[in-house]
């Protein structure tokens, strides 16, 4: 723990405002995902047996690997901010690139998971799925929507970190001015938190 003075300390730098704005945006995101978590919990309480049966079919290994990957990518994202604030541009760039890479691996695993399901005929509105009980249809509907929208957030996150990496290389982001990178980190960690809840709800609680 060390303290340094930077441009962010000066009044009127826009630093506090930029961060507050990001947090407000994340709160709208929280309520957006919250609506889907609400649907999940109500349907789970109504069709607990069907949800139990359906969750058993989830690929626990892939889900666990993806959890570890996403947590680790959050770790490297946080480290990249410490690195830039200590003036280590090289290390920060490397950590940002590593975060993007892990986001990419997460999506590749998701691709395998989804394509395995789709090849088994389990996808929204499929003939096989519609033959199942209504609770299982709801489970898979929520599964595809929630993990799909989460994956979309991962894709957007990778893109934004890519821009930050460019800014870091160009020294637009530097040890004095780093709020863009910090806000990108906040977004990435938020996406990690959503997954922290999706993982037990879809893969563990059987």
């Amino acid at each position: 723990m060390e303290t340094t003075k930077s441009r962010a300390d000066e009044p009127g730098s826009g630093y506090e405002g930029a961060k507050l704005g990001m947090w407000f945006f994340l709160i709208t995101e929280l309520l957006f995902f919250g609506g889907m978590f609400l649907l999940y919990s109500v349907y789970r309480s109504k069709y607990s047996q069907d949800f139990h049966t359906a969750a058993l079919e989830e690929n626990l290994l892939l889900g666990s690997i993806n959890t570890v990957i996403l947590i680790t990518s959050s770790f490297t994202m946080a480290l990249s901010i410490t690195a830039i604030r200590k003036g280590n541009k090289q290390l920060s760039s490397l950590l940002q690139a590593g975060t993007m890479l892990m986001g990419g691996i997460f999506l590749v695993n998701k691709y395998f998971e989804w394509s395995a399901k789709i090849s088994h005929g389990i996808y929204p509105d499929s003939v096989l799925l519609l033959k199942r009980s209504s609770g299982e249809i709801l489970f898979y509907g929520l599964y595809y929507v929630m993990t799909g929208i989460h994956a979309l957030h991962v894709i957007i996150g990778i893109g934004v970190i890519g821009v930050m990496l460019f800014f870091t290389r160009r020294e637009i982001i530097n040890r004095e001015s780093f709020v863009k990178l910090e806000n990108t980190g906040l977004y990435w960690h938020f996406v990690d938190i959503i997954w922290i809840y999706l993982f037990p709800l879809f893969y563990l609680v059987t």
């Binding site: 723990m1 060390e2 303290t3 340094t4 003075k5 930077s6 962010a8 300390d9 630093y15 506090e16 961060k19 626990l60 666990s64 959890t67 570890v68 947590i71 680790t72 770790f75 946080a78 480290l79 410490t82 604030r85 200590k86 709020v179 910090e182 993982f199 037990p200 563990l204 609680v205 059987t206």
Partner: peptide, 29 residues
């Protein structure tokens, strides 16, 4: 005022805790 820098070690500790909790939640399940 944004002047606090979290050290690498603190983040490493939190990362370790998060992995432990992930292992715990899988084991409990």
């Amino acid at each position: 005022d944004g002047s606090h820098i979290t050290g690498y070690k603190t983040y490493a500790l939190i990362w370790g805790l998060l992995l432990l909790l992930t292992a715990a939640t899988i084991t409990v399940a």
